[in-house]
Write a protein that binds this DNA or RNA. Sequence first.
RNA 1: GGAGGCGUGGCAGAGCGGCCGAUUGCACGUGUCUUGAAAACACGAGACCCGCAAGGGUCCGGGGGUUCAAAUCCCUCCGCCUCCGCCA
Length: 419
Amino acid sequence: MIDLRTLRENPDAVRASQRARGEDEGLVDALLSADERRRAAIARADALRAEQKQFGKQVGRARGEERDALLAKGKELAAEVKAAEAEQTDAEAVLDGAHRAIPNIVYPDVPPGGEDDYVVLKHVGEPRTFDFEPLDHLDLGARLGAIDMERGAKVSGSRFYFLTGVGAQLQLALLNLAAQQAVANGFTLMIPPVLVRPEIMGGTGYLGAHAAEVYHLADEDLYLVGTSEVPLAGYHANEILDLSAGPRRYAGWSSCFRREAGSYGKDTRGIIRVHQFDKVEMFVYCRPADAEAEHARLLAWEEQMLAKIEVPYRVIDTAAGDLGSSAARKFDAEAWLPTQQTYRELTSTSNCTTFQARRLAVRYRDENGRPQTAATLNGTLATTRWIVAILENHQQPDGSVTVPEALRPLLGRDVLSPV
RNA sequence: GGAGGCGUGGCAGAGCGGCCGAUUGCACGUGUCUUGAAAACACGAGACCCGCAAGGGUCCGGGGGUUCAAAUCCCUCCGCCUCCGCCA
């Protein structure tokens, strides 16, 4: 949820943000009037409750006929209070609805527009020129005995797969490398629950526009997380953190689950877009003033990890309309895939400012000891999809794949050969 | 799955319809004393909402109900504990 004080003081900034995202500006005015209605309702209810409180003391002291008369009047007062409280409850519910309808306020320098309006910030590495016809990751994976899509479909359906033999080993090596880097950089490694309660899933902003993306267990009313960002954001829900020593940094290792509803026919080949994959995710709680600097650090740590798999990539500044509702800014790193002749997302880091933390009531104490809403950020460190980039970029004419230097100690081999 | 117990401020732990936003202890902060510290004494400390402020309101696990009035009575959900049963 956005900060209401910012909204009152500068509604035009919020309108501009909505425009950049291509969202309805009218929601801003709806929120403003809901806010006013709520304030009026609270003021009236408070006054009536104060009156009733004083009245109650009178009744407590009164005896006999005087008491009977007061009791009669008390009923009237109680009815008035009840009505005022009903109005307050309703006004608050309306405000909450309007409040949740508005996505985070994007930074002014975020490029406006949709999916294709990103700005490329940099390129790192040169796409390799092949003197043979490169195979895609699925052909390679099949030859190496690393990926079995057919049996994945047999057992679980489309967009499911088995990582087999060296494929499974490669994923563990990769995620271990990511976890080690995170720990070396001061992150606390976490293995979180992957089923969460509705309020946690909602608090991270995933039950809004993207609710159809999320698996839900109806019997338990629990949601399967699409990223460990969700449980890590919930980890400190309803807490006041001590951030005086700097940001709190966590690295979550988990399986991730996505319905991929509405992506029928998109990336159906291989493990680029799947229902279940594994990921090491960085998650940070910090003071809002530190958020932009921390966002830059997260991107730097992602690039540190990307360097270890030695693939060419670019970094983009995602356009406003392509941000999640929680993000105020997002940088993606995309690796070059030779068989698709294009860049595909390997990491994504979002600065959610206070948007998530406000929903989840994560706060910290400022210099004066006053509780303030914290900022949250997240960023990818490695995922199953990285295997695609590794296989395709490091393949050899004989169908083998050279293992990047950094992965060799963890994998225990220099090259993956066809079986 | 069955039976029972419990959930109060940072922690411990009273209160069981109005005088209770709440006794007390520990921990915490400030002051007095002291060369400094400890001890002792005094005072002060929670969160949320409305308000420029003065001030007011709300919060005793969450939600709902009874009542003029609920920490206190009822319902429900959540969590924790104990016992029995069942099972990877």
